[in-house]
Write a protein that binds this DNA or RNA. Structure first.
Lengths: 122, 122
DNA sequence: ATTTGACATGGAGTAGACTCCAGCATCTAC
DNA sequence: GTAGATGCTGGAGTCTACTCCATGTCAAAT
């Protein structure tokens, strides 16, 4: 089964322009049919879902491109990719820590505000 | 005690240009001395630390400006600010959830990769 | 008295990640 | 056989958040 760029846009939620931009940046490079139109596959769907996860965890396109390059090079780059994933895992843990720290701080601030509001009513 | 923009830059870790940019965006507007030079205070330090926390939790400058405006308007805007903080708290929880979900997924992927690597050695 | 250093302003430039557009090809429906 | 939908390319434009630059003021050091 293949998807045209329009359909792939719908199932991924990415705009057609974004898909073409990602292709220009070599993140995802679909095959072309006899009329030079893009044919995205199920595999492309799996791949873009992972790309989106990398984006959600703040990986810049430059870095995703590095990973994509390895991936398109095939199995012999597995070790290198695994290394990238391990590093990225660390980055996610750090992002989580920052959020948690800020959440704690925010909760204290909200509490202070609430007390202040109460004392104002009295 | 006052800080010149140079000193304030050092203690906040923000560049002088960024501080001036934040002022243009009305995030933090320090007093001026008789020579029109900026005089940042301890309060400004506390305030910018909070701004940085908002930035770390992905609040755009546009939104921080809204909060800053309320804050500069004084105590009567407290309720509104509290409401903003509560909403922002929700946003942090959502960001955390996304990270956690992605971490779980990444961990499974790493495991798969590791198994694949092992089976390759055999 | 002049050089140096920190500060000021207004405006231009940059990086990243899209987003939009003009001009052209192809397929389908009427 | 023409209109409309969909696709293609190359390149320009947009938005956010800075970052850099030219020009100018002022005070302290030499």
């Amino acid at each position: 089964m293949f998807f045209s760029i329009g359909n792939f846009s719908k199932i991924t939620g990415l705009s057609i322009d974004t898909l073409r931009y990602y292709e220009k940046e070599k993140l995802i490079v679909p095959e072309r049919d006899s009329h030079n139109q893009r044919r995205y596959t199920e595999k492309d769907k799996t791949w873009i879902d992972f790309i989106l996860r990398l984006k959600e965890t703040a990986m810049p396109i430059r870095e995703i491109r590095k990973y994509a390059k390895l991936r398109y090079e095939g199995d012999q780059t597995m070790k290198e990719r695994l290394e990238m994933l391990r590093l990225h895992r660390q980055s996610i843990l750090e992002q989580k820590k920052i959020l948690e720290d800020n959440l704690k701080h925010l909760d204290r601030k909200i509490e202070t505000y609430e007390k202040e509001m109460l004392s104002r009513i009295k």
